[in-house]
Design a protein around this nucleic acid. Structure first.
Lengths: 144, 144
DNA sequence: CCTGGTCGCAACATTTGCTGTTACGACTGA
DNA sequence: TCAGTCGTAACAGCAAATGTTGCGACCAGG
């Protein structure tokens, strides 16, 4: 499975913004978050842009611009973030249509689709059980 | 998430071999399976090679060569296939190590790892609930 | 002992998606 | 007006999956 880091980086950004705001700051810049996540500010802006479309964060432009949370971390789940930043389904079908004249080729896609749908639904339920508040708590619990 | 088709193609191949054997044939060739799945025989051989290492299929060489099941479909689960053909974890961490001097950068990876571990365990349980016999049954149930 | 058919595997091309980088216009508080 | 930041496009780099070709290894059957 292709290990992409989008969900991890998005969670990182949200936790960072929240902690920064708890320290009394209004907004966080993509520059600051990128520095913490050790990546490029544009990568952060792209990800946060998707989170904004999902209503999880807000951005301010102009001078003193930056990012802030649209609501509390306790009301955001990993599922919200997952759906905002992960486009496709977990498992893919054949790249090219299988032989429709063959019994297996004909029936395999509906069969797998049904099975995959059930599994992805379970995955979603699991993701929905974890809030970003949980994530931040775990982050702060790391031993020094 | 990158939609890879390895699990789907592997299930397709197993179902095809089983059905072919139920029709009285000894072994199936990668050529035949590739034709049904509309892909290249080498792709099939690569995948089946991984399934063989996992003890799910056997191959015969020489004349009249081909592939056969190592055991019944009812004793193979999608988890067996998944572990045989999917290398990495479901979600990836940061590509570059986050800033260890930052509270979030320091704690994020252990936190996410713990969360991801639990989720992947649930995914495995779901995959283990589906046997390849279930898959073949669903395939044959497709309406013509 | 040959031969034809198939696997095993290496090597490389192609495709796809994610990530990194640069550039520049848009926006706005000071 | 200006400095700082977002928004976004464009492109390069990289990694993994997939597709393709080639060829040696293997072996049942003649």
């Amino acid at each position: 499975m292709s290990a992409n880091s989008r969900l991890t980086i998005a969670a990182h950004a949200l936790a960072w913004i929240s902690l920064y705001q708890r320290q009394g700051n209004e907004v966080a810049t993509s520059e600051q978050i990128a520095s913490s996540a050790n990546t490029n500010p544009v990568v952060i802006r792209r990800l946060l842009g998707e989170l904004r479309r999902a209503g999880l964060v807000e951005s301010r432009r102009g001078a003193g611009a930056g990012w802030s949370l649209a609501r509390g971390l306790e009301s955001m789940t990993l599922l919200d973030v997952y759906e905002a930043v992960e486009p496709g389904p977990l498992f893919g079908m054949h790249r090219a249509t299988p032989d429709q004249g063959c019994t297996v080729g004909y029936g395999i896609q509906p069969a797998m689709r049904g099975i995959y749908d059930g599994i992805e639904e379970t995955l979603r339920r699991e993701l929905a059980r974890v809030t970003l508040e949980d994530v931040l708590r775990d982050v702060l619990a790391a031993p020094r």
